[in-house]
Nucleic acid binder design. Sequence first.
DNA 1: TTACGATTTTATCAAATGATAACGACAGTA
DNA 2: TACTGTCGTTATCATTTGATAAAATCGTAA
Lengths: 188, 188
Amino acid sequence: MKQFFKEIFPVTQTSITDIEEKIEFVDLNKGTVFIEKDKINKKEYLLFSGICKSFLFNADGDEVTLSFYSGNAVLTPHTIRTQHNKSLLYFKTLTPCRLGLIDAENFIALMYTHEDIKNFANQILKNELMTKLEKEIGLLSLSAADRLKNFRVKHTNFENLIPHTDIASYLGITSISISRLRKALIHK
Amino acid sequence: MKQFFKEIFPVTQTSITDIEEKIEFVDLNKGTVFIEKDKINKKEYLLFSGICKSFLFNADGDEVTLSFYSGNAVLTPHTIRTQHNKSLLYFKTLTPCRLGLIDAENFIALMYTHEDIKNFANQILKNELMTKLEKEIGLLSLSAADRLKNFRVKHTNFENLIPHTDIASYLGITSISISRLRKALIHK
DNA sequence: TTACGATTTTATCAAATGATAACGACAGTA
DNA sequence: TACTGTCGTTATCATTTGATAAAATCGTAA
């Protein structure tokens, strides 16, 4: 737990303790859809280990990968819950994952009583927004090869840990294309 | 004002009046950058007429268009547009625009005292997130031609009102491509 | 009106990406 | 061990998109 917050946004030992006592820990196998679109959800999710992704289905019924998360990280509140507590997205594990769940209302209460926890939450939101902006800029103005290069910097070794189809649907290309790009990038 | 809220999210006459008395109205010529990245900003923006866009610059220094807004509409809310009261994005007018500005803190105060204004704000936020998701899905899984088709449905007649370069940078293609696609789509 | 500058279109060619199919590698299982 | 299904690669060909340059169009100001 200490390490978790140290990596993301340092908070006091008191805050860590107060969060920890409200957390429910869960271990999931890979390939588990643990948040479903349009379903009621009232939890916050801390990812302690493993890799998971958020996704939707396009008009053809294919999965479209929006974001990856790898421990240690926090899944973003906004997309998991709208004002009616319904998720906008699906989430699934791509490797075995260890998650920490907190009741969202409890967590909000902690934000009010602990200034550093509020700052922590703001940092999470900021990170997510910046990541989204960077991704959109990449999609709008970079070639697939450059998007893959950026992906490698941001998500080191993911190509050896999760299916390439998930990476392809994140980059907006086919899995055949990613294979071709991987070959082309070897000599560069 | 009545028409504005009627189109977006109906609120009571009392709420309209309470908002209206805190609004500052502004008329801008086309091509005016009225929100700048990294500059202090503490306002909410209501767009009563005209078309504007949010944008950033990519690594090559080219404008990347993120979203379009046309009256009547509300621009990206302060909460997700800024961090520490500094804007994450640029906004500029693409036609003459009539805007209404409200101090963000004043607006939040109204949300606490008026349930319908809070719901209105939540609706704006949700719409913004949904629009973003739809755009990302399009970028990830549609051809440029299909993205243009969708754009035409969502932004009727924009091709006759704003520069095609802005539309191209929104769709992630060159202005030459958009011209080619326009020709190809005439016979379909 | 003419002239100028910005925008849009067109043409040509090269490069990137998709579609389809076949092949190979690999893990799990009977 | 052989079988099976999943995943990744490779090959071929068609299509899409970009780059560059030139021409056409449009709006605005002199």
